[in-house]
Amino acid sequence: MGEPILKVDDINVWYGSIHAIKGISFEVYEDEIVTLIGANGAGKSTTLNTISGLLHSKTGSISFMGKNLAKIAPHKIVDEGLAQVPEGRRVFLQMSVAENLEMGAFTAPSSGIAADLEKVYSLFPRLKERRRQVAGTLSGGEQQMLAMGRALMSHPKLLMLDEPSMGLAPILVEQIFEIIGNLHKAGSTILLVEQNAQMALSIADRGYVLETGKIVHSGSGSELLASPEIKRAYLGG
């Protein structure tokens, strides 16, 4: 499999006195979909935010494409090819759809933005129809598409998605997962954080199960789906 493109090695993250991440290690290889599943508060988002540089680990290291991310200023991490679609989408509600996408291309050379916009619009035609509307007027599903499109504008080598299904109707969840599958087929490497373990594991190559800040299981998507323990704890079976 060669070298992983993302290697998280023994990170520990605290929120004040709360030890949120307790020595997590995992890898993502090129062209994979890897999922982190677990209940609310297991530390999934904390892990992603640490990788993105919004939070810092007191120990260990995170290397991306062979570079130590701890040595890179948080706002330069996007430049390295790492984009995150944050939990709760966090699109800029008072800015137009097109402006949101432009913000996604903040670090990209301005010459390519027009072409990239067209690419995102062809992926999400709804966004094109609504490109002049402010993002606050979009529905939840459209905002999720916008958040994904915004992340894609930076040409990420690794796309990290934090609970893309959160708060969406089941039909929209299916649609979002279909899009994730298509992005993967088109060559994106994806790190997917989900509470919807069933959906996540069914499209993932590999998965890690987080419980109160620790990885308690790992394996291929199908292995984890079949595991009785995981069925009982996360799949409601």
């Binding site: 993105s52 540089g53 919004l54 200023a73 948080p74 706002h75 330069k76 991490i77 996007v78 430049d79 984009a83 995150q84 944050p86 966090r90 699109v91 800029f92 509600l93 008072q94 800015m95 402006e99 432009e102 913000m103 996604g104 903040f106 670090t107 915004r150 930076s154």
Partner: peptide
Amino acid sequence: KAMRAVSEDKGAAQLMGINV
């Protein structure tokens, strides 16, 4: 535009690569 983005959501702006 980056200023407007930062004023709305600093964390999300930083995820865009904006130097807050």
